[in-house]
């Protein structure tokens, strides 16, 4: 498995992976600075942390999952490299598991960078416009806890995007699924049943009702692990041309 993980990392060299990992936290940072420095944001660190996490979970997490899974799948689809990768002396499930592990780890890295970007935006905005400086203690534990829970809850959306991206050769299919899921999430934000929609589960971590937040965490994380397992079993059994 270590060799497969190492090989997956080597395949990503000079791909768009670095751009993907850095661009989303950079967006959060720039948006945060602009909002705070222009006086259009809270001056409380805790509220700032929640705002950053909300933007991430609502829109950027599903979009990151879409782009990341499509990128990793396209490395094989685009060059029709499955015929090499899956003819290696490794079980097919191990090949797909390695890809899933890399995707989940990269999502963790992006999540951590979102936390850094959110906090840095508050600090930098305070330097630019001292009157907007954040009040209170740095919300490191709060931010870390929320983002960790969102990462776990987001596993279901990541697993859905993984299944679609690996199955379909066309780049367009996972992108359409990702955009459609995010769009429906926007429309269904306040719906009671929104809790059960995978694209809204991570956002529900911020729900004021702790029970709903807990439900979202369980459904997203356990559902994600289960769907990853089913997808890997299915991909290992299907034909590869």
């Amino acid at each position: 498995m270590i060799a497969l993980l190492q090989a997956e990392c080597l395949k990503l060299r000079r791909s768009l992976i670095v751009l993907l990992i850095l661009s989303i936290p950079t967006m959060v940072f720039l948006l945060g600075v602009a909002a705070i420095a222009t006086g259009n944001s809270t001056d409380q660190w805790n509220n700032m942390a929640m705002s950053g996490a909300a933007i991430w979970s609502f829109f950027l997490l599903p979009m990151s999952a879409t782009a990341l899974t499509a990128l990793i799948a396209q490395l094989e689809h685009g060059s029709r490299a499955w015929s090499y990768t899956l003819a290696l002396p490794y079980p097919k499930w191990a090949v797909f598991t390695a890809k899933a592990v890399i995707i989940v780890l990269v999502m963790a890295v992006i999540s951590a960078l979102i936390g850094v970007a959110t906090i840095m935006s508050g600090i930098v905005a305070g330097w630019i416009a001292p009157e907007t400086a954040m009040q209170g203690d740095l919300p490191l534990a709060l931010m870390g806890g929320i983002l960790f829970k969102m990462w776990l809850t987001g596993l279901l959306v990541v697993a859905i995007q993984f299944a679609v991206a690996m199955r379909f050769e066309s780049f367009a299919v996972p992108v359409v699924v990702g955009i459609a899921g995010t769009f429906v999430a926007v429309v269904a934000t306040s719906a009671q049943a929104g809790l059960y929609f995978p694209w809204l589960m991570a956002t529900n971590i911020l729900n004021s009702d702790p029970e709903r937040a807990q439900q979202a965490l369980l459904m997203g994380s356990l559902g994600g692990v289960l769907l990853f397992a089913l997808t890997i079993a299915w991909l290992s059994r299907r034909d590869w041309h």
Binding site: S79, Y84, A87
Partner: peptide, 16 residues
Amino acid sequence: AKVGAIVENPALYPNL
């Protein structure tokens, strides 16, 4: 374990 293969097209990674 001891099989080398080329199937149809040379399946390579263009970014590398």
